[in-house]
Design a protein around this nucleic acid. Structure first.
Lengths: 174, 174
DNA sequence: CATTCCATGTAAATAGTTACATGATTGC
DNA sequence: GCAATCATGTAACTATTTACATGGAATG
């Protein structure tokens, strides 16, 4: 799986511009995949060159023109090939947990600060996911729903563990 | 955060070989960071060249010789600089969720198979984490304990959501 | 006799990140 | 007047992955 497979999947139902693709990455894929413009635009160029998609210039009023990309038969084949290829392991990299793991090398106040800001950040992520979820809930079928539910429940479980964990550090004076 | 910071952290307390570093990545960091030999060995070479670590050849009996790496003062400084640098966001990439998101393009049996094999795989991961955790529980301070607990609770929450999700597909005939 | 463990590396390719670069329109 | 939204890209760099390459000792 890479950004190409994700883009092909998005284009299976609708033609989209690079800008619109970025929005979908942010709104629907944010929990399990990230892609920036610097990844998307060169990738679209490469995919067009390879004949997986075609580009159409769309003139717009009141806003800049856009390049609308449409998937070709070759692109659809490529997407089904991805869907049938061996599954790759998830990858998770956490700078927060790396630092926390080495907590013994910093003061306890620092650890508490780190955990508290991670809690705050995670609360924002879960609220965003919930908000987006409510917004497009009616348009989603079961499988994408499970994807977002998994994000929400994972973040919530993380919050619980962090809140439980922080009590080990904050000593209550009697 | 990259493999260099993780290696420096490991070397803060003990001198280690590349092979031993790989084992620590697998046993203690597996939930939040992955590094292969192909990343570790070139990185150790680069770090030695930069004066962050020193190399010592250790002759062993009954097993191959090893290169034992020791952190220098410059390396320690570098590690503290990392600990004080701005925190990076976690990154999570899931091929499983990407495919599940596009579930409408495959048959329902396929989705059920995907979810079931993901459940099986996740059960293995959580059992491994639990096993490792029990093994070195007494040697860990609070902060690394929280890291591993977070892994266990995250996987368990994932299992619950997947098991709940799969009931939407498997229709029970009355 | 085969597999796993111990142990270390190189070369080539790929993907993704950081930094740069531009500019019109809309709403506050 | 300023920020946000809409819109598209390039260049240089870095990190990691894939593939290659080797070999002795212990265990079953």
């Amino acid at each position: 799986m890479n950004s190409q497979d994700a883009i092909l999947g998005m284009l299976m139902k609708y033609s989209l511009s690079g800008y619109e693709i970025k929005q979908i990455f942010e709104q629907r894929f944010s929990y399990f995949f990230k892609a920036s413009y610097e990844t998307i635009y060169p990738m679209l160029g490469k995919m067009e060159k390879e004949g997986l998609i075609t580009k159409e210039n769309v003139l717009q009023e009141g806003r800049p023109n856009k390049h609308l990309y449409t998937i070709t038969d070759k692109g659809k084949q490529q997407f089904f090939a991805y869907l049938n290829s061996p599954l790759n392991d998830d990858t998770f990299n956490s700078d927060f947990l790396m630092r926390l793991y080495f907590g013994e090398f910093v003061g306890e106040e620092n650890i508490i600060d780190w955990i508290n800001s991670e809690i705050k950040h995670t609360r924002e992520l879960v609220e965003n996911l919930k908000g987006d979820y409510e917004g497009f809930f009616p348009y989603l079928s079961s499988s994408p729903k499970i994807c977002i539910e998994l994000g929400i429940s994972t973040y919530q479980s993380k919050l619980e563990t962090l809140e439980r964990g922080i009590t080990r550090f904050t000593k209550i004076e009697p």
